[in-house]
Amino acid sequence: MINDVLFALNNKSIAFKKRQVLSNISLKIRRGETVAIIGISGCGKSSLLKVLLEQQREQCSLCPQQPMLVESLSVYHNIYMGQLQQHNFFYNLINLMRPFSKPTAEIRQLTQLIGLESQLFTSVDQLSGGQQQRTSIARALYQGQSIFLGDEPLSSVDPIQAIAMLNIIKARHETVVIALHNKEMALGEFDRIIALSNSSIIFDGPANELNDELMANVYQQPDKSHC
């Protein structure tokens, strides 16, 4: 049973740039759950994810809010970066100049899945915002971890594609924790919702238990500046 708990916070306060964003929160996330973290921007979603990442660094694939891609390099290389640690430096260096066929085949398959196959060897600076975000997701997928931690990973992707991408993410990871802004998607696609407001968790439970009144609270403007 104990092994099943991946993340656990107990009365934890979280600060970002010396400003407390979350105070005394407690939560547990078990293996196999798909969790959406919702709340208005600035309420501490990213900080919470950061703390979660620290708890399971070895098992997490991360997809940050800013794609943080290397713009002059190709989609292929940016995705390949997900597995840099698994090869020695000289393999990586040669691959930088002449892609090896094995990772090329693997990554080509991934780009087929996310619809970027024709841009495989195009540099990221020539892509649209949505395409860049899909590249960033593909990079997380390529890491092949069991946990996916995403911070608004789909904000620039169009809604129809977003659902498809989310399904790919869910299919390839045992546990999925995603911070997002889109409440419809959160309600429709996740088992569990954690809602943040006024530096605390105001709701934590199955998606179907979240009613409209609570939802309105989540998206209400904070009454104090500390959120």
Partner: peptide, 24 residues
């Protein structure tokens, strides 16, 4: 240069992330 929280280190960091971004 802003780097992801799960960045690599050492030579890999240099060759894949820093050097390409600094090249222009």
């Amino acid at each position: 240069i802003k780097l992801r929280d799960d960045k690599t280190s050492g030579l890999n960091l240099w060759s894949y992330q820093l050097q390409p971004q600094l090249y222009p």
